[in-house]
Design a protein around this nucleic acid. Structure first.
Lengths: 126, 126
DNA sequence: CTCTATGCAAAAACTTTGCAGGGAT
DNA sequence: ATCCCTGCAAAGTTTTTGCATAGAG
């Protein structure tokens, strides 16, 4: 979906900065931090974070906190879980069937922490 | 278990500060941040965090990142999941049966994010 | 005596805020 | 003209580091 449409649907004013952020998020298959994209986007960090906040309020994106104290963002699409590796700090989407329910709670995201296969194999241990 | 014993077992030198941290962690039923306990403990934050790092290396504790960008710590006891509320930011242990497995990954913790029953009821919405 | 732990102050890292200027309607 | 967005710089928050002193064995 064109990013302008997505914004209009949510009643968010369409600006260049907002379209750029959404286009990045639509392109990426994994959640990204500001650091990940600051090279490929011409935008001040204040603008980035202010717009991210707006997107969060409008329920457009998820934020995932990693061990490295950065926040990683993704478009809300199909619900799925995430894995964060405590060695390499990467955040990865886990599409395979993980279903969690908790009575009386609204569940918005599930984050699994541990060591990813690649770090296990190469013995990049903590 | 007396906190001194726990330290000896792990080959960590026993000090007053370390015993105090462990005693707090043994007392608390939910994960705590430095801010949670800084009133009830007479210890510099540098000492606190340095010892927390040591405990993490020795696999004595878990750390959970919350939406508020603080880290919450707990003794490693029986494996269990955690819930973090994105409204009140509290971290809560979930004892009920949540079992997650992922081939080739080492899973160390599961964090469920969303809105807790109390915030749902009182409509303390984001 | 030696080696590690502690406290204080300063640094670091990520995110947020204040403010003035710009754009869009 | 008004309202909100943007960029820059400065502030804020949590955690880490440097350094001198204190403490344990």
């Amino acid at each position: 979906m064109p990013s302008g449409k997505l914004l209009e649907e949510k009643g968010i004013k369409v600006t260049q900065a907002r379209k750029e952020i959404l286009e990045i998020l639509e392109t990426c298959t994994q959640p990204v931090s500001y650091e990940n994209i600051k090279e490929s986007i011409s935008m001040d960090k204040a603008t980035f974070y202010r717009n991210i906040s707006k997107f969060e309020e409008s329920n457009l994106i998820n934020a995932i906190e990693s061990h490295d104290k950065k926040r990683y963002f993704e478009l809300k699409r199909k619900p799925h879980a995430h894995f964060t590796c405590r060695v390499c700090n990467q955040v990865e989407c886990i599409k395979s069937g993980i279903y969690v329910t908790l009575q009386n709670y609204d569940i918005e995201n599930v984050i699994i922490q541990g060591i990813c296969p690649s770090c296990k194999l190469t013995n990049r241990l903590p």
